[in-house]
Design a protein around this nucleic acid. Structure first.
Length: 401
RNA sequence: GGGGAGAUACCGAAGUGGCCAAACGGGACGGACUGUAAAUCCGUUGGCUCCGCCUUCAGUGGUUCGAAUCCACUUCUCCCCA
């Protein structure tokens, strides 16, 4: 067996996590040059402080950043505070509400806190910048000069804009500037590589273009695959199919178990440290077992191995063996008799009495294990706890006080 | 600046005076099946003191026995022309 050339092997490790790289040859050359010159590559990644909950889909590029870091390079995190403050003035686009300086700072802090679980953010290991640093100093003419670098047709090619055009939704002028701003960030930090999700390729190219015009070597664009959510669609908070980094063990385990089979390979490759051969072996087995393995890996990553084992035991108990969760929340309500729908609503198990009635009619409500059939039935709440189940997931023990 | 079109429930989209709490599709939820999969099938999807009642169709104010549907104004959007 031949001893692998270290640079090639680094490259392979990186490319394994990539969706598109423009270009792999350039990346190889830079890694090689940096290695020879003893220089760290500046690997840029922009974060948008418009939301605070990071999910495992966001974690993919961050893990690549981490890999770069492990290989001796320097992650450069750009907090897009200037862009976030601008937002989408109509407030309709929930992805881009205009934020106050305080909100931006708060979001950035929580964001960094979560990223810090994956990446070493200490001073020497990582550089954190805010783009207000340079955009704050630019005047209107500087902005216009920047705008002169791109054509409208080009900017409108973006998928998001295309869709809004088709659906006749508003596109604001300043939104067209976002790619340019992001590109300018690359110029200002002299990025060697920029990371981003698959949908970011256009913006990353913009960075290349601007750097070239400014006489800098154009950055390598490195995009990571978009992770599929638990329902097989692109993972996104708006679809509710995301797994937050901060999800408690039981929830995380359950979400992974409800993942589509086809998504498992990507999840293994992008979110676990397993080697390719091992992933293959696991996937060759029973899908249920493979997914359980995946769920353990994910929970162990987000929490620890112990939490993973406990979460699996709890999951099996509840859903495989169809038993009650080991810990059923207890709730004390004013004692006395009341109609079942009112009780469900009061206990927060349903959103309304109407919903409760529907669920009862559909056989989704159980009292002490017995299916309730009559929406008009009443329940007496006393010292003795009543076990109430709504669907498969909502359970509580209620007692009167 | 001028002209035209439009704003309907979580989303998309019908409905253009009573039969509309509002078709249909997606999503979501419940049930069956299961590997809590996926797919499939059935059902539900404004609220309530629920076989009846109450509040919704951008906002405000009108017309009418009666308005999501007609009129006026307001706000927002899209398209075309300049």
């Amino acid at each position: 067996m031949r001893v692998p050339d270290p640079v090639m092997s680094d490259l392979q490790r990186l490319l394994r996590l990539a969706s598109d790289v423009v270009t792999p040859e350039e990346l190889a050359r830079r890694l090689d040059e940096a290695g020879r010159a003893g220089r760290r590559l500046r690997v840029k990644f922009g974060i948008d402080p418009t939301f605070t909950q990071v999910h495992v889909g966001h974690a993919v590029p961050i893990r690549v950043l981490r890999l770069f870091q492990e290989l001796g390079h320097l992650p450069v995190l750009i907090i897009g505070d200037a862009t976030a403050r601008l937002g989408d003035p109509t407030g309709r686009n929930e992805q881009r509400p205009p934020l106050s300086a305080e909100e931006v700072e708060h979001n950035a802090a929580t964001y960094l806190d979560q990223i810090g679980r994956i990446l070493d953010l200490s001073a020497g290991a990582c550089e954190v910048r805010r783009n207000s640093e340079w955009f704050g100093a630019m005047d209107f003419f500087d902005g216009l000069r920047l705008a002169a670098h791109a054509t409208v047709a080009r900017l409108l090619e973006r998928d998001d804009f295309q869709q809004r055009q088709d659906r006749r939704l508003p596109i604001h002028l300043h939104e067209l500037m976002y790619p340019l701003m992001q590109g300018w960030d690359s110029v200002m930090v002299r990025a060697d590589v920029e990371l981003g999700g698959n949908d970011q390729l256009f913006n990353l190219h913009m960075g290349r273009q601007l750097q070239e015009r400014e006489g800098q070597p154009p950055q390598v664009c490195f995009t990571t695959p978009l992770l599929l959510g638990t329902d097989g669609r692109k993972m996104s908070k708006t679809y509710g199919n995301h797994l937050p980094l901060t999800a408690p063990p039981d929830e995380a385990f359950g979400k992974v178990m409800s993942l589509a089979d086809d998504a498992m390979a990507d999840w293994f490759r992008l979110l676990t440290p397993l080697e390719p051969e091992e992933v293959e072996a696991v996937l060759a087995g029973h899908p249920r077992a493979a997914k359980a393995r995946l769920a353990r890996e994910i929970v162990a990553w987000l929490h620890d191995a112990e939490a993973a084992a406990a979460a699996e035991a709890e999951f099996d108990r509840r859903f495989r063996d169809r038993q009650l969760p080991s810990e059923v929340p207890e709730l004390s309500l004013p004692g006395g008799e009341r109609p079942l729908p009112a009780l469900l609503k009061e206990a927060g198990l349903t959103a309304s009495t109407s919903e409760a009635r529907r669920l009862i009619a559909q056989g989704g409500v159980r009292i002490d294990g017995r299916a309730a059939a009559d929406p008009n039935e009443t329940v007496v709440l006393g010292a003795e706890a009543v076990l109430v189940q709504v669907g498969k997931r909502r359970v509580a023990r209620l007692r009167g006080s």
